[in-house]
Structures are given as C-alpha cells and as structure tokens.
Design a protein around this nucleic acid. Structure first.
Length: 190
DNA sequence: GTAGTGATTTTCT
DNA sequence: GAAAATCACTACA
C-alpha cells in the first residue's frame, strides 16, 4: 500500500532506514517505472553542514522546510538530477536522498533507452542517485510533488521484510562525514 | 579488479 | 567566481 503522510512526519534519521525495501513508483508519460529502494542517505537541516538546507531556506531548498512526503529534486554537477523525499514536520528541514533502486522491477526496457540504449546489466541502470533519475526520467518537473496524494510519483510498501542493513558515512560530501547516515540494504536474497 | 579525471550548470557567496 | 549529495570513460593491473 501507498505510504501515508504519517510515515514521513517523523525524524529524518528514523524515516531513512525504513525506506529500505520500499518500492518507488513513477507513472510518467513514457510508461510505468518501479524499483525497490536499497540505498538511502539522511540529510538534516540546521544540524547538518552537508545538507542543502543548512544555511536556511532558499528558492531551491524551500520544499525541504515544507510538509513531509514531498519530493525534492535538484540538479548537480551540471549533469545529473537527484531525488529526495522530504521528512520531518512542516517548518523543520529534513530529507532522505534516494541513492539507489535495485532491482529495476518495471519499465526496464525504457530505463535502458533513457540511459543511452547501451547494453548494460540491469543493476547498472539505477544503482546511483544520478543513474536512477536518468533511468526513471526524473527531472525538476518532479520537484515538489506530494507523494501521498499524487498518482504519478509515490512510494509503496509491499510487505518486504528488511532483516539486516549496513550503516556507513555518506558519499560525495566533504563536511560532517563522521556521521553514519547512509543506509544500505543488501537486497533480496538471490 | 582499482585509480584518476573531465563534463557542465545551478546555486549561493 | 567557486563549489557541488555524480557518472562514465580511460589506463593499468
């Protein structure tokens, strides 16, 4: 079932690990994409220098200060988009970066086309924040979507049980790297 | 398998 | 003007 507002309206560090194993679903004009989340990172606000929201709200980050359960999509390194899910309550910044969805469940052929049409193993399609957005066709048009009311983009719990997951420092940042706010799930049993 | 580096644009200082 | 929550390609082992 679709995750409700209450799931997101909790501390970011609590929401982040619970997103592991959930399904990311996106109905675009291209078709339907589904993937299972297996890697996330938590980004706070005032207490996290690595967060975009650290210096207070700006036009880019205002959605992180808004209601929980919204999407936050930003452009980075002149090349790629990244998808976040806003947590915490209204007025308090916090978001969870969706780093990876493995395996791609639905729309795999369209994902491969979006990723350049080159022959790649499935796990190469969406095992990174930039790759996942490219595969799903997510851009800033998907910024600020309410995941609890939208029929376009949302998260779903299909009853997956997470037995164990790893906790490590976050990737690609240069500040606050001593915090273990990256959560990695080994994925479904093979 | 690992290591090094260029691409390219949004955003804030 | 500088830095950035990344990726792909190349070289080499």
């Amino acid at each position: 079932m679709k995750l409700a507002r209450a799931f997101y309206q909790r501390p970011t560090l609590q929401v982040a690990p619970e997103l592991l194993g959930k399904f990311l679903i996106f109905h675009s004009h291209q078709g339907t994409f589904v993937g299972q989340i297996n890697e996330v990172e938590a980004y706070l606000g005032q207490d996290d220098p690595a967060s975009h929201a650290f210096r207070g709200p700006t036009p880019r980050t205002e959605v992180m200060f808004g209601e929980a359960g919204f999407s936050y999509v930003y452009f980075i390194y002149g090349m790629q988009y990244s998808l976040n899910i806003v947590a915490e309550t209204k007025g308090k910044a916090g978001a969870v970066l969706i780093r990876s969805v493995i395996p791609p469940i639905e729309g795999v052929e369209i994902m491969r086309q979006n990723r350049g049409g080159k022959p790649r193993p499935d796990r190469e399609l969406s095992n990174g924040p930039g790759k996942l957005c490219q595969a799903f066709g997510i851009t800033r048009e998907q910024n600020g979507i309410d995941l609890t009311t939208s029929g376009e983009l949302y998260l779903e719990d299909r009853g997956t049980r997470i037995l164990t997951h790893q906790v490590t420092p976050r990737i690609g940042i240069s500040q606050n790297t001593d915090k273990l706010w990256r959560y990695v799930w080994q994925g479904p049993e093979k």
